[in-house]
């Protein structure tokens, strides 16, 4: 995630606190999604941006995870995101994101 976006998130958290804040990601590539998710959870992995060493531990979800899909009205989901279920590996994405959330709770 580029430094500008990290700065925006950090500012947002400084202003609003982390209470009730949730991050939802839409990258089709599992690795790309993973990097973004880990950055907002554990901090900037390259230790270069404003989130370097900042472990926000925000709950993070991917829009293509089955458990996310379940709570969105199906007509809206189908129109806005459903198509990417055919394109992306949703199982792998789900596994990656469950692991990141699990790790964030443990540590």
């Amino acid at each position: 995630m580029d430094t500008e976006k990290q700065a925006i998130i950090k500012q947002l958290v400084d202003d609003m606190g982390t209470e009730g804040l949730v991050v939802v990601i839409g990258a089709a590539d599992p690795e790309v999604a993973q990097v973004t998710a880990e950055t907002v959870t554990f901090g900037d992995p390259s230790f270069a941006g404003p989130l370097a060493g900042v472990s926000l531990r925000l709950p993070v979800y991917h829009i293509l995870e089955p458990e996310v899909k379940k709570v969105i009205p199906q007509d809206v989901y189908k129109e806005q995101a459903g198509f990417l279920e055919l394109v992306a590996n949703t199982e792998e994405i789900g596994k990656i994101f469950r692991e990141i959330r699990g790790k964030a709770r443990e540590t």
Binding site: I9, L21, V24, G26, A28, A33, I63
Partner: peptide, 9 residues
């Protein structure tokens, strides 16, 4: 906070 992708969602 939404992080979309031009080539994804």
């Amino acid at each position: 906070i939404v992080f979309g992708d031009r080539d994804g969602v």
